[in-house]
Design a binder for these strands. Structure first.
Length: 708
DNA sequence: GGCATGTGTATTTTT
DNA sequence: TACACATGCC
C-alpha cells in the first residue's frame, strides 16, 4: 500500500517525516503536529523497509510513546509496529541494563528506586553517619536527593552546585560529601539503582568496550521527542548510540523547555548541529491547534521573554473570541467561576473530557477538588501526589521488592518497622542478623554456596530473634514471603530451598499480593487511619498486577511509570465516562483540550515564589505559562484571585492582596477580554445562565465573618 | 529501645 | 497542613 497518509502533511512536516538518513533537527512549536509528524516518520521508515525493532523512539512519557506507536500502526497495518523500542530514557535504560548490565557487573535483578526511596536511603545514611547530630540545620532528605541528583545530572562539582543552586547548604559541604559517598557505595552493595543511575549506566554501556558497539548497532534509527527537556547525560548517551549508523532525529521546542530543575538544558537543542555534524534542520511553525486569538496572546507573552526564540507560531484557524482574564475576589470565587464556566461549556457540547484546569503546583487545585466533589463533577488529576507514594502502597511494594532483591536495605528497613515493637534500632539489628548488609558476605559473589545464603534463606532457616510484641506478625511476614516464593517453612529444622528452581512453582503475581495482604492488612489497620480505604487500594494493586506475569516487570513498571493519579485506581474511569482533567502544567505537556482553564495567575503562584530567585528561573516560569496557554484549542480562561487568606499560617482573618502575574503585562492583556467575576455581565456565549451577582459577593463576605 | 505527644518550620515542577 | 524532630513516659 502506498503512502497516501503523507498527503495529510504540510510540506515542512513531510520533509521531516520522509527525511532519509543522518542527523535531523526538527524545531516544532506548540500544536504544530509534532506527534503526527513523528508517528508518520516511524511509519515511513517501516514502509521503507526498516525493521521496527531496529527503531528506537525516546519520548518523555510512556503514554507519548504508546500514542505514537498506535498512530503509526494505523498507517502500516501490515507490520508489527509494537516491536519499535519505545519509551522514556529511563525505561529504555532499564531494558538495556537488564540485557547488557553484566558488562558492568550489574546483577540482572537490581531494584529501581524512585525518588522517595532515594530519600529514605539518604536518611538512613544521614542518621548512621550522625552528621545531623550537632548541626541543627543539616539538609533534609529531600534536599539531599535534589542536590545529589542535580550534581550528577549536570555533571557539575558539588561545590559549584551548592554555590549556585543551594547556597543555604554551603556550610554542610563536608557532611553532604560524606553522605553522598556512602549513598553511592550503598547502592552498589545492595543492587539498587536510582533514576539517575539508570541514565548513567546506560551511558557507561555505550562507552563499554565489550558491548558499546553492539548496543549502538541494534538500531538503524534513533528518534527523540521533547529534546529541549533532556540533560547533558542524555545528549552524551545519544552520541554514544550513534557509532556505525548516524541516523538520529530529535524534535523539540526551545520555547517549551520547563525541566531545568531536572538539569535539562536547552543547549542540547541549540548545539545539536555541532554535536551531530551535517545535521539538517526543519522548522514547523504552522499551528493546527489553537485559534488565532489564543496564539496572539501566547506570542505576546513570549515577546516579553529575554531570550530569542527560533520561531513564531501562526494559524489559519478562524480567529475566535479573545481569551478571557477573570479577576476574582478570592479563591472561593475563582473556584465558583471555574465550576460555572465548566458546566456552561458542557451545556454547549464540550464534554468534560475536552476541558482541563491547569495549575502550577499540585496543591493549587485543593479548593477546586473539594468543590468538584461537592457538585458531583467527576475529575481525573494528573501530577501531584501519586498513588504509588501513599505509605501503604509503598509498604506493599517493599515486600515485593524484598522477594525480588533480598539485599534491598530500604525495603527491609521499611517493612520491619511496620511490626509492633520494632523501631529503627531493632530493624537494623535484624537486618544485620539476616545479612542484608551485603558488605559482610561479599567475597565470592559467584560462589554457589554464598548465593544460597541470601537473607531470605537465613530468614527461613534460622529466624532471627525478635521482640515478644513482634513475634506473631513477624512469623506472619515470614509465612507470606515463603508463600510468595513457593517455599515451605513448616518445621523449624527444615532447610528449604528458595532458589527459582525450587520444586513448587511460585504463585502468580496477584496471588502473591493476596498473600502479602494477609500479612499487611492487620498492620495497616493498626498503623494508619482510614484503613479500609487503604486495604482496598492494596486489592486494586492486585488487579493491576493481573496484567503481569513477571513480578520484576510489575515492580519496575510501577516505579518507572506509576499510575498517574490516585483516582486512576480508586475508580478506574470507564471509557464512556466523562471526567474533567485537572493537571499540573508540567504534566500537561504534549496534551491539548478544547477548553483550558488556568487558575492562580497571581505572582507567587505563576511565577512560583520558589523560582523567582534568578532571571533564568523567571524565564522558565514564563515558558511554563506559555505551555499552559498553548494547550487550548478553542477557548482559554485565565483566573486571577485578588485576595488570599493565609489561614494556613495563622488562624484568623488575615489576608493579603495578590498581584496579577508579572507575565500579564499590558501588551499581553490587550489580547484578553477582562472580566470581573461577580461584578459584570458574562460574555455572550455564556449569557443565559445564572451568574454570581454583586449581592452574592456581599453575602459571601459577611458569611466569612463567622465561617471560621 | 519504642512510642505517644508536642513543637516548630518550610511550603514546585517529575522520570 | 504535614512532616521532621525533641521530649518524656512505658
Amino acid at each position: 500500500m502506498a503512502t497516501n497518509w503523507l498527503d495529510d502533511l504540510n510540506p515542512a512536516q513531510r520533509e521531516a517525516a520522509t527525511f532519509g538518513t543522518g542527523p535531523l533537527l526538527v524545531i516544532a512549536g506548540a500544536g504544530t503536529g509534532k506527534t503526527k509528524t513523528l508517528a508518520c516518520r516511524v511509519a515511513y521508515l517501516i514502509d521503507q523497509g526498516v525493521k521496527p525493532e531496529r527503531i528506537l523512539l525516546l519520548t518523555f512519557t510512556r503514554r507519548a510513546a504508546a500514542e505514537m506507536i498506535r498512530r503509526a500502526q494505523k498507517m502500516c497495518s501490515a507490520v508489527e509496529v509494537g516491536k519499535v523500542w519505545g519509551g522514556t530514557f529511563h525505561a529504555v535504560a532499564n531494558r538495556l541494563l537488564r540485557i547488557y548490565g553484566q558488562a558492568l557487573s550489574l546483577a540482572p535483578n537490581f531494584t529501581v528506586m524512585d525518588q522517595s526511596d532515594a530519600a529514605d536511603l539518604m536518611n538512613l545514611i544521614r542518621s548512621e553517619l550522625g552528621v545531623a547530630k550537632d548541626k541543627r540545620r543539616f539538609p533534609k532528605k529531600r534536599t539531599l536527593v535534589a542536590v545529589y541528583s542535580h550534581t550528577v545530572n549536570a555533571q557539575n562539582s558539588l561545590r559549584r552546585v551548592l554555590d549556585k543552586y543551594f547556597p543555604w547548604c554551603k556550610e554542610e559541604y563536608e557532611g553532604m560529601k560524606a553522605v553522598f559517598e556512602h549513598y553511592v557505595q550503598r547502592k552498589a552493595d545492595h543492587q539498587l539503582m536510582d533514576f539517575d543511575d539508570l541514565l548513567l549506566h546506560w551511558l557507561a554501556l555505550c562507552d563499554s568496550q565489550e558491548v558499546g558497539r553492539a548496543i549502538a548497532d541494534r538500531f538503524d534509527h534513533v528518534l527523540v521527542d521533547e529534546y529541549q527537556d533532556t540533560n547533558v547525560i542524555q545528549a552524551r548517551t545519544l552520541r554514544g548510540m550513534r557509532k556505525a549508523y548516524d541516523s538520529i532525529t530529535v524534535v523539540g521546542d526551545d520555547a517549551q523547555s520547563i525541566y531545568s530543575f531536572r538539569s535539562a538544558t536547552v543547549r542540547n537543542i541549540l548545539d545539536f548541529p555541532e554535536q551531530f555534524p551535517g545535521a539538517q534542520r526543519v522548522t514547523l511553525e504552522k499551528n493546527y491547534r489553537s485559534t488565532q486569538s489564543i496564539l496572539a496572546a501566547a506570542n505576546a507573552l513570549m515577546d516579553q521573554a529575554v531570550e530569542r526564540y527560533t520561531k513564531r507560531l501562526w494559524s489559519d484557524r478562524a480567529s475566535g473570541s479573545k481569551p478571557l482574564l477573570h479577576h476574582c475576589v478570592d479563591e472561593t470565587q475563582q473556584t465558583e467561576a471555574v465550576c460555572r464556566h465548566i458546566l456552561q461549556h458542557r451545556e454547549q457540547d464540550v464534554p468534560l473530557r475536552d476541558q482541563a484546569v491547569l495549575f502550577r503546583a499540585g496543591h493549587h487545585s485543593a479548593d477546586l477538588e473539594i468543590e468538584l466533589g461537592r457538585r458531583n463533577i467527576p475529575f481525573h488529576k494528573y501530577g501531584g501526589l501519586k498513588f504509588i507514594e501513599a505509605a501503604h502502597i509503598k509498604d506493599t511494594l517493599a515486600v515485593l521488592r524484598i522477594l525480588e532483591n533480598p539485599y534491598d536495605v530500604i525495603s527491609w528497613f521499611r517493612v520491619l518497622q511496620l511490626l509492633e515493637a520494632i523501631g529503627p534500632k531493632t530493624a537494623r539489628r535484624i537486618m544485620n542478623d539476616l545479612g542484608v548488609d551485603r558488605r559482610d558476605d561479599q567475597p565470592s559473589r559467584t560462589d554457589d554456596e554464598t548465593r544460597r545464603q541470601t537473607p531470605l534463606h537465613r530468614l527461613f532457616r534460622t529466624p532471627p530473634r525478635v521482640p515478644a510484641g513482634a513475634r506473631e506478625s513477624f512469623s506472619c511476614l515470614r509465612q507470606s514471603l515463603a508463600d510468595c516464593l513457593g517455599v515451605v517453612v513448616g518445621a523449624e529444622n527444615e532447610t528449604p530451598d528458595a532458589t527459582p528452581t525450587s520444586l513448587s512453582d511460585p504463585p502468580s503475581v496477584p496471588v502473591q499480593l493476596e498473600r502479602i495482604a494477609r500479612f499487611l492488612n492487620p498492620v495497616i489497620e493498626r498503623v494508619y487511619d482510614n484503613y479500609l480505604v487503604r486495604q482496598r487500594d492494596v486489592d486494586q494493586l492486585a488487579l493491576i498486577a493481573s496484567r503481569y506475569r513477571s513480578r520484576a516487570r510489575f515492580i519496575t513498571d510501577l516505579t518507572l511509570d506509576p499510575p498517574s493519579a490516585t483516582s486512576d485506581l480508586a475508580q478506574p474511569p470507564h471509557l464512556d465516562d466523562d471526567y474533567l482533567n485537572l493537571s499540573t502544567i508540567h504534566s500537561a505537556k504534549g496534551c491539548e483540550w478544547t477548553v483550558v482553564h488556568i487558575i492562580h495567575a497571581a505572582d507567587g503562584m505563576i511565577p512560583s515564589d520558589m523560582a523567582v530567585g534568578d532571571s533564568a528561573g523567571v524565564e522558565e516560569e514564563r515558558r511554563l505559562l506559555y505551555v499552559a496557554m498553548t494547550r487550548a484549542k478553542d477557548r482559554l480562561h485565565v483566573y486571577f484571585p485578588l485576595r488570599y487568606y493565609h489561614a494556613k499560617y495563622r488562624r484568623g482573618d488575615g489576608h493579603g492582596f495578590a498581584q496579577l502575574s508579572r507575565f500579564l503585562v499590558d501588551k499581553v492583556r490587550t489580547c484578553f477580554e477582562e472580566r470581573a467575576v461577580g461584578q459584570s455581565a458574562e460574555p455572550d456565549d455564556m449569557a443565559n445562565t445564572p451568574s454570581t451577582t454583586d449581592a452574592q459577593v456581599v453575602r459571601d463576605s459577611i458569611n466569612r465573618l463567622w465561617s471560621d
